[in-house]
Computed example of a mutant assay.
Amino acid sequence: MARSLGKHGKAGQGACLLGIALLLSACLPGPPGPAPSSSPGTPSSIPAPPSPGPGTPSTNAAPSPGESVHFTAQGDIGVSTGAKKVLDVVAGLAPQLNLTLGDFAYKAGLEQQFCDMVTARLGEDFPYQLVTGNHESDGHDGDIEKYVQCLPNKLPGVQGEYGTQWRVDVPARNPVVRFILVSPGIEFRDGQPLDYSRDSERWRWTADAIDEAKSQKIPWTVVGMHTPCLSVGNYGCLAGQDFTNMLIEKKVDLVLSGHDHVYQRTHQLATGADCAQLVPASFTSGCLADTDGSMVQGSGTVFATVGVGGVGLYNVHADDPEMRYFASTSGKNQDPAFGTLDVTATADELAARFVPADGYAFSDSFTVRRR
Rank of each mutant, 00 (worst) to 15 (best):
A2I: 13
R3Y: 04
R3C: 04
L5Y: 06
K7T: 15
G12N: 04
G14M: 10
A15S: 02
A15T: 13
L17N: 06
I20N: 00
L22Y: 06
L23R: 04
L24I: 10
S25A: 07
S25R: 06
S25M: 07
P29T: 13
P31C: 06
P32F: 00
P36R: 02
P36Q: 07
S38L: 03
S39A: 06
G41E: 04
S45D: 09
A48E: 08
S51G: 10
G55W: 11
T56P: 00
P63N: 08
S64R: 06
P65I: 09
E67R: 03
S68I: 07
V69L: 03
T72H: 02
Q74F: 13
Q74D: 11
D76Q: 09
V89S: 07
L101R: 06
L101H: 08
D103Q: 03
Y106P: 07
K107P: 12
A108F: 12
C115I: 09
M117L: 15
V118P: 02
T119Q: 08
R121W: 11
F126Y: 12
Q129S: 12
Q129W: 11
Q129N: 11
L130H: 08
T132V: 14
S137I: 15
D141A: 15
D141G: 13
Y147M: 14
Q149C: 10
C150D: 15
E161H: 09
T164H: 08
Q165W: 08
V170L: 08
V176L: 05
I180P: 01
L181C: 10
V182W: 05
V182C: 05
L194S: 08
L194N: 10
S200R: 09
R204M: 10
D211V: 13
D211K: 13
A213S: 09
K217R: 08
K217G: 00
M225P: 02
M225N: 04
P228A: 06
P228T: 10
C229D: 01
N234F: 11
N234L: 11
Y235R: 10
G236W: 08
F243S: 02
F243Y: 09
L247Y: 02
I248S: 00
E249R: 11
E249K: 09
V255K: 00
G258V: 07
Y263A: 01
Q264H: 03
H267F: 10
L269R: 08
T271Y: 01
A273D: 07
A273N: 05
Q277H: 08
V279R: 01
V279A: 04
T284W: 01
C287K: 08
T291S: 06
G293T: 14
M295T: 15
M295S: 12
G298R: 14
S299M: 10
S299F: 12
F303T: 12
T305K: 02
V306A: 05
V308H: 04
Y314G: 01
A318F: 14
D320S: 12
M323G: 04
M323H: 10
Y325Q: 06
F326P: 00
A327K: 05
P336I: 15
F338G: 02
T340N: 00
L341H: 04
T344G: 01
A345R: 01
T346V: 06
A347M: 02
A351P: 00
S365F: 00
S365R: 04
T367E: 02
R370T: 13
